[in-house]
Design a protein around this nucleic acid. Sequence first.
DNA 1: AATGAATGAGCTTTCATTCAT
DNA 2: GATGAATGAAAGCTCATTCAT
Lengths: 198, 198, 198, 198
Amino acid sequence: MNEKFYSLKKEKQDRMINGAMQVFSQYGYRHSSTDEMVRVCGVSKGLWFHYFENKPGLYSFVASYGLKYAMLEISMMTVPEGADYFTLRYAVEECKMSMMKKYPYLPLFLNSIVREEDPDVEKLIREPRQKYAEQLSEIMMQADYTLLRNHEDYLLLIDMLDYTIEALLADGYRSPVFSPSRYLMEVQKHIDVMKRLL
Amino acid sequence: MNEKFYSLKKEKQDRMINGAMQVFSQYGYRHSSTDEMVRVCGVSKGLWFHYFENKPGLYSFVASYGLKYAMLEISMMTVPEGADYFTLRYAVEECKMSMMKKYPYLPLFLNSIVREEDPDVEKLIREPRQKYAEQLSEIMMQADYTLLRNHEDYLLLIDMLDYTIEALLADGYRSPVFSPSRYLMEVQKHIDVMKRLL
Amino acid sequence: MNEKFYSLKKEKQDRMINGAMQVFSQYGYRHSSTDEMVRVCGVSKGLWFHYFENKPGLYSFVASYGLKYAMLEISMMTVPEGADYFTLRYAVEECKMSMMKKYPYLPLFLNSIVREEDPDVEKLIREPRQKYAEQLSEIMMQADYTLLRNHEDYLLLIDMLDYTIEALLADGYRSPVFSPSRYLMEVQKHIDVMKRLL
Amino acid sequence: MNEKFYSLKKEKQDRMINGAMQVFSQYGYRHSSTDEMVRVCGVSKGLWFHYFENKPGLYSFVASYGLKYAMLEISMMTVPEGADYFTLRYAVEECKMSMMKKYPYLPLFLNSIVREEDPDVEKLIREPRQKYAEQLSEIMMQADYTLLRNHEDYLLLIDMLDYTIEALLADGYRSPVFSPSRYLMEVQKHIDVMKRLL
DNA sequence: AATGAATGAGCTTTCATTCAT
DNA sequence: GATGAATGAAAGCTCATTCAT
């Protein structure tokens, strides 16, 4: 399945993937329409269905693709030996910013995949979504927790940080032009705040 | 505007408001359909448009109404003199539970309003949403912050608590029957965890 | 099911039924399009789906309705005591012509239902189609077969007659205006030919 | 026209013709899709339109081709001197079976051509279809009619036989594998029944 | 006031046909 | 010649909205 799509020129593959990511990340699965994708990336209506069986098929393909690409990029992160949790967390965000070179909407899309609840596609993306979450967990588990472990319920702190970072990303995309450097600066600020708290 | 609606029998007003709240809180603005509301509260399709100009008009009315009602309830909260932040936060949740007597879906709906991003309605609800947020802030500012103020960036802790409480509420509504007492118990548990952290 | 449709004004019900019968009888289930029905009887696209769940639902409703109506008309035929097979067969065709007063395409539609093989609707119409066939058989079994029974394989002769009559009907509808009287004359001629054969 | 097609290798010509015959005979003109032909005979989509202007052009070509081929085969039949009608009729069916060596779906296709009523192609195939019918008539007119002529309207009997034989063929193709010998046996049986009738 | 029949724009999907390679 | 990517019109169906009763 989807071999046909993979035999397209890489440039066009990416144009379609980017178009789908942009629309899906902004409107979620159900509100995203083929017409919008036609407008966004100039690929005709019929072609989407030439390459993907139907709308759930398209969504699950692009979601899986995005998750896999993200996992690949993350797997190539150089995790500094003995880095503390916060350093590592920042590095992950840096990594996401580097994904944007090829897939500008991927960081936002990753977040929207995690929140997607439509029953038509939930089953289809459950597994890769789960794997992505696990990879992130594993990365973060390599951190030096000596600082955090002093606090009995540090897991809640981590949740808080995740929520904050997700919100900062959404804010970034809401601005006319997303600036990766500005985003990273914001993330750093918030991380520092929490670090001091401990 | 909407005087017509207010001249309806209160019972029917509330039936419609509850129907709209239930559907909007579950599916968000765009996925909510007139047919669903007809099914849920047995008021005919045409009547919705008789009282409310169109879908955005209906949403903004019900959202504003819900926000106002919540603000009224909250304004009547008895804030114990010198209560600490966490006690107060819990009291707010108790207050939400009391709203459920008249509008069972209001607590969930309040959260969904906050997250609503559809461009067709965002402008229409911006102001009351803002006011509601401010009222909550003001309430919370009356708390005794001596415990929290030791921590330079305690505002972030507060955010975390808010996220957690919102998630617990959503979980509660996902169960077959929402149990206010069970919900309040869960909230208390989580508050205690954080308190100990400080 | 379909109570909604039955609560329409009889005139409109019949307009829709006639529109559907005309289109379905001419093009068969799959080639018949909603747009064509809109053109033919001026009822909007959406309304067809307001009254009937989907295309198979529409087809099976109209087919069942047509078959039932035909059975009713046939049941009210006055079968002359001791009439021979051919007299009876002609009477059935007369009866079909009387159906045309309310449903001009019904005789043609009945034939097309019998031939319908689309898997999406075959199951849905199997039962009424079967019953209609049985009613016709029962009617014909009341005939005086003394003439026919002399011939060992008279059933084949009957088949032949049926094929011929069906073909004559199709020819009739192909002409610009279907003339019932002309059609009945043709049928009579062919029946006479066969009678003489025996 | 279609010289281009004829300059193809004979093997490929036949592969395409067989593919088209198979699909057209099973689904009729309108339901037959290019994709299905691609699947069935592995010739690319574009090529069909390279050789045939459009769908009606393809259909009329293949239909004419099939009819001509059938006429050729029939013209080469050795008609036994003084054979009666039924012997001759059987011989025609034997002849159809021999066509299957090169074009396995031709016998079924011939029948489907006769029934084809789509306005887009009816005109295009009218003439060859007519000629084929005439050739068959002429062949059959060479029969010894002494037995039949006793019956004033024996032409109708002939129609009946034709309908029966067509139905037997359709049944044969519905089975997983069409067995020519089994089919011929069935035909013989039915012919015998009728013979006894006279 | 109240109903729900009626409409049509818009969505997903199919398919004959075109065209660059 | 041969391929299959690409297109867009049209199909079945949904849904906010209007309107006659």
